[in-house]
Each structure stands twice: as structure tokens, then as C-alpha cells.
Design a protein around this nucleic acid. Structure first.
Lengths: 247, 247
DNA sequence: CGGTTCATTGATTCGCGTCAATGCAGGTGG
DNA sequence: CCACCTGCATTGACGCGAATCAATGAACCG
């Protein structure tokens, strides 16, 4: 990646796309599922479709939360920073995920594209109008946010109480449930890993060295294989799940 | 507390109360704020009012999520357990808080009363009907759940990246913003601490010994005072906030 | 009073972080 | 084509912060 390309650009530089809600890949998983088919044109008038390059920032923590987003293609990381640079990645988003959680009127996290990513964007004000107009969106949003909150609780258990080995195993189990639904290599359980070691470490509350050592250890125990940096193959799923919960 | 009293009872043993939504203390902070005044009677037909003793369980992790709750009086802890007994407290709830987050159709956590607690309860199915009937409830719920999610993200930063000293300081700052709004001793910053050291440790991802040592250290540095086990006085709020973010 | 529970304090251990060196792939230019 | 980067991952040596193990203190209560 060219130097002027990394980290500094935002959605404001993003390419605008000419997409439609009716043909959207995540039509039935995002909150749009709460909008009846015949009203999709109405939804579309409020939506803007964006395309983001890898490494670009979508929203910044503590900025005013003017928009909400749905991820339609790609992968996104969410993180919070401390003043001295310590970072906690609070989640990875994949197609269908909601993006733009705010505490009162400010974004609660920074969001950055891990891969080339497509999004649809709604102004928050208009979105609140939509909630009034289509109560089923509210039901879908409550369901989505509760699932996200349940995921956050599980991550708190991981960060507060699990060992490094349990964390890495949990991460792989989690990843395997979130990605690769329509891949052909499903039975061989080869996970694409769109994030680097730094991201994994900052997600698990560890260092890159500990992540690396732990992956090596799992490899030595024939639980996983590492064909290349971008992929991990799960050799023994039951064992991995057992390690993740210390059974 | 008598032995037969601890941990085993649930809301099924709870005393039923004869309360009203109109007179409710949290009428304007809970999702009920989304219901217009004239429709409160309608809301009330769906609500059951409960009173729970200290130490009693309100819901159990992985049980079917039949109900949702609002806390109206008292304090509640939420936690997840591992098979070997390790525990992570994922939050403390105070009056106005929503209770009953579920992952699909199962509760995501166990909830237990820290003090004598009053709650109102709604069957989940009926609640979904309410969402359809009063879209403003959906808006309130989205706002409440987003605030909870933002809080969960902050806690992930704490658990993943903060030192013991930073965690304890963060906890005290957090507590001071959640409790004691209508107390007279506001300016002296004396926090009531409804939870014991084990609960604090399990919330912060530490041990009781580390919590105790850290509190002693903060006391020695004249940042806090500990008049008795149930209270902590904040002597230097700015310093405490600085420690919590390592500035 | 003894008994129980909870908090504090001290001594020691250990898992993971820190520091440092090496490996390895991809890109660039002579 | 190969020498030389540069960025990321791996591996090893060592140190530290928090956990563990253990003892003591303090409050409460039958």
C-alpha cells in the first residue's frame, strides 16, 4: 500500500456505488429485513452505498454519530484507543453486521476496513424516522443489538478470565462461525484470516508474540495447521472447542 | 444470611407487588418512556411487579428467555460462568436498567440481586407486540441497548488492556456516575459499595487480593478513603480519573 | 466467647509481557 | 538475476505484574 493511502482517508473519500436494496446480499440479515418488499424503494431513497479500500477508516471514536451503516461486503475491525496508544479491538464485522453504535451522540469506537469493503449508510435522523415508520425495523434492531451485546459479554469473559491458549482457541472457533458460509472448502475447515497478528493480539488482549507462540503450540498438538499467513486450517474442531472452554 | 436462602431461589419465589407504571421511579429512564402517558394502563396490564431478596437469582444463563425486566429499585449483578467455576461479572445494574439480554432465545447471562431489588417483568412475546404497537419503544430500546453496548466496549478495553490500578480507578469512576444521584452527601463523594470484594474482582478480571492491595495503595496516595467496608470516599476525583486513563 | 465470613497483608510462583534476534516473503532498483 | 530493503511472523532469553498460597485481622452473631 502506498504511504499516503494508509489510515488517513475516511468514508469521505469513498467511492459511491449505484446499488439497490432489492439485490442486496444482506437484505435478509441486516435490519432492512424489517422493511416489507414493496417499501424497499422508500428505504433506498435514504441509503447511500459506499465502497471503502482496505485500511481506510469508516468512523472515528468520539466523532458525532451522524450515520449508521450496514456492512454488505468485506470485513471491518472496531477498536478503542488509550492516550498512550494501547488498543483494544472490540469486534470484527462481516457482511450483514450493523455498524455505528453510539454512546449518546458520539461513536463508541473507531471502525476500519480490513479488506475492500462495501457499506450502506443512513443518516441517523432519517433512521429514527424509519423506526417510527416501520416498527418491524425496531424489532430487528433490538434483536441485532441484543445479539451484539451477548457477543460482547462472551468477549468480556474471554478477556477477564481465560488463559492465552483458551483465548486463541475461542477466537478460532468464533471466526469459523462468522466467515466462510458459502466457500467450497467447508469440510476442510480452512479459515481465511483477514486480520494480521497485531489485530488478533489486540482483540484477545495479548501480545503478538503470545499469539504466535500459542498458534505454534496448537499446531504442534495437531489441533490446527497453518498453510500460510492468511489461512488457518482446523484439524480437530472438537478439541479446539474443548480448549476454548477448558473442558 | 441463612443457608437455605443463598443463590438457590429465583424470581419464582419472589413477592408480587401491587405497583403502577404511572408512579414508577424509572418511568422516564426505562423503555416505558416510549409509551405515552394515556397508554400506561395498557402497559400495566402486561407488567408484573416483583420484589427480590438480596442474593436471589433473577434469571439464569442459557435458560429460555421468556421475560424481560426493568430494575426499579436496588442493584443487580450480571455474570457468566465457566465450567471450572471461573466467573466474569459483565455488569452491575441500577434503577432504570434493562435486564434480559438474550442470544437468540436464551439468556446471555445470570442475574442476581445484590440488594433487595424491585423489578417489573414483561413476557417477551407480549413485549414484541408492544414494539409493534408503540414504535417509540423501539427507539428507546435501540438507544438503551446502544448505551449498554458502548459500556460493554469500554469494559473490554479495561479487561484487555488496563493495569490493575487503572481498572480499580475506572471502576470507582464508573460507580460514582451510576449511583448516588439523589443522596445528600454528593459533594463529599462517598460512594456506597453494594458489592463485596469478590464481585469487584470478578468484574475487573482480578483477584480479591489484588483489588484489596490496590485500594490500600490508592488510600495511601490520598486518592480515596475507606470509612468502612460498604463505602469508599473519593478524595481526589481528578487524580482518580487520570489514573483510570493513565494520563 | 468460639465460629463464621470477609478483608487485608506478606511470601512466593508463574504466565505472559518485554526485549532482542532471526526468518521469510514481496518489492525495488542496479 | 540478485543484492538489499521493508514489513510481518516466529523464536528465544529474561523480567515483572498479578495470581497463588498462607497467615492474620476485623466484624458480626448465635
Amino acid at each position: 500500500m502506498a504511504p499516503f493511502d494508509s489510515g488517513k482517508s475516511t468514508w469521505k473519500n469513498a467511492a459511491l456505488l449505484d446499488a439497490t436494496c432489492a439485490e442486496c446480499d444482506v437484505r435478509n440479515t441486516a435490519f432492512c429485513d424489517g422493511v416489507p418488499e414493496r417499501e424497499l424503494a422508500r428505504l433506498e431513497t435514504l441509503a447511500t452505498f459506499l465502497e471503502i479500500r482496505s485500511g481506510e477508516t469508516i468512523i472515528n471514536e468520539a466523532d458525532p454519530s451522524e450515520f449508521i451503516f450496514n456492512v454488505t461486503v468485506g470485513a471491518v475491525k472496531l477498536y478503542k484507543l488509550m492516550a498512550d496508544g494501547r488498543r483494544q479491538i472490540t469486534g470484527f464485522l462481516f457482511p450483514g453486521s450493523f455498524l455505528g453504535v453510539s454512546d449518546h451522540s458520539e461513536y463508541a469506537y473507531t471502525a476500519e476496513a480490513l479488506t475492500p469493503t462495501s457499506l450502506c449508510r443512513f443518516p441517523r435522523k432519517k433512521f429514527e424516522g424509519l423506526l417510527a415508520e416501520f416498527p418491524t425495523i425496531g424489532q430487528r434492531m433490538v434483536s441485532i443489538l441484543m445479539d451484539d451485546l451477548a457477543g460482547a459479554q462472551s468477549q468480556m469473559l474471554l478477556l477477564g478470565r481465560k488463559t492465552a491458549r483458551e483465548r486463541v482457541a475461542s477466537f478460532l472457533v468464533l471466526l469459523s462461525t462468522r466467515t466462510g458460509d458459502k466457500d467450497q472448502e467447508q469440510e476442510r475447515d480452512v479459515l481465511p484470516i483477514p486480520m494480521n497478528r497485531v489485530d488478533i493480539a489486540d482483540f484477545l488482549g495479548l501480545t503478538i508474540e503470545t499469539v504466535s507462540r500459542t498458534l505454534t503450540s496448537l499446531k504442534k498438538d495437531n489441533v490446527i495447521a497453518i498453510p500460510d499467513g492468511g489461512h488457518i486450517e482446523i484439524l480437530d474442531r472438537d478439541e479446539l472447542a474443548a480448549i476454548s472452554e477448558h473442558i
